[in-house]
């Protein structure tokens, strides 16, 4: 299994295409136990939409898909920008690029940039997530 030590700044992992499903939306909303989520009101944007946090697990999806160990991976910060809602049934594509990497106290920190677009290429969500990976021998 690969670890964060195998990642390089500028490296791009293959894009992932997904469809926004009812189950995915429901699972994400359930995380925060919202009894009255506005996302389910079709009057707001013409259809049911996804929470802005829907793609929060992008890092997990990309790393697992590319043979990386998730052992000891801990999030340290995130920066997210939302440009348009993700609609139920919509096909989205997300890219992933390593934009920063550094060592601190024996731990490897990596910042990934994720950009999610619709099928026309319009940007819907842009995120920069930083994680550390504890030394593998400690895990």
């Amino acid at each position: 299994m690969k670890t964060f030590a195998d990642l390089e700044v500028g490296q791009r992992l293959p894009p992932i295409e997904l469809t926004v499903t009812e189950e995915w939306i429901a699972t994400d909303i359930a995380l925060a136990h919202d009894p009255n989520p506005p996302e389910k009101n079709p009057d707001l944007f013409g259809s049911v939409i996804a929470p802005p946090t829907l793609t929060n697990a992008d890092f997990d999806r990309f790393l697992r898909a590319n043979g990386f160990s998730m052992s000891g991976v801990i999030p340290t910060k995130t920066r997210q920008e939302y440009f348009a809602p993700l609609h139920l049934g919509q096909t989205i594509q997300t890219t992933c690029e390593v934009v920063d990497k550094y060592e601190r106290k024996g731990r490897t920190y990596v910042t990934f940039e994720f950009v999610t677009t619709d099928q026309t290429g319009r940007v819907l969500v842009k995120k920069r997530d930083t994680f550390l990976q504890m030394p593998v021998e400690a895990t």
Binding site: L31, P37, P38, P52, T53, K77, T78, R79, Q80, Y82
Partner: peptide, 27 residues
């Protein structure tokens, strides 16, 4: 951590309303 962000987002979605889905930023 994603769950913590989901909690924070709930507060913001209800506070800002629909504009949060189009102009929202969180750091």
């Amino acid at each position: 951590g994603g769950q913590s962000i989901a909690w924070i987002s709930r507060a913001l979605v209800h506070y800002f309303g629909p504009t949060y889905f189009q102009t929202g930023r969180l750091e």
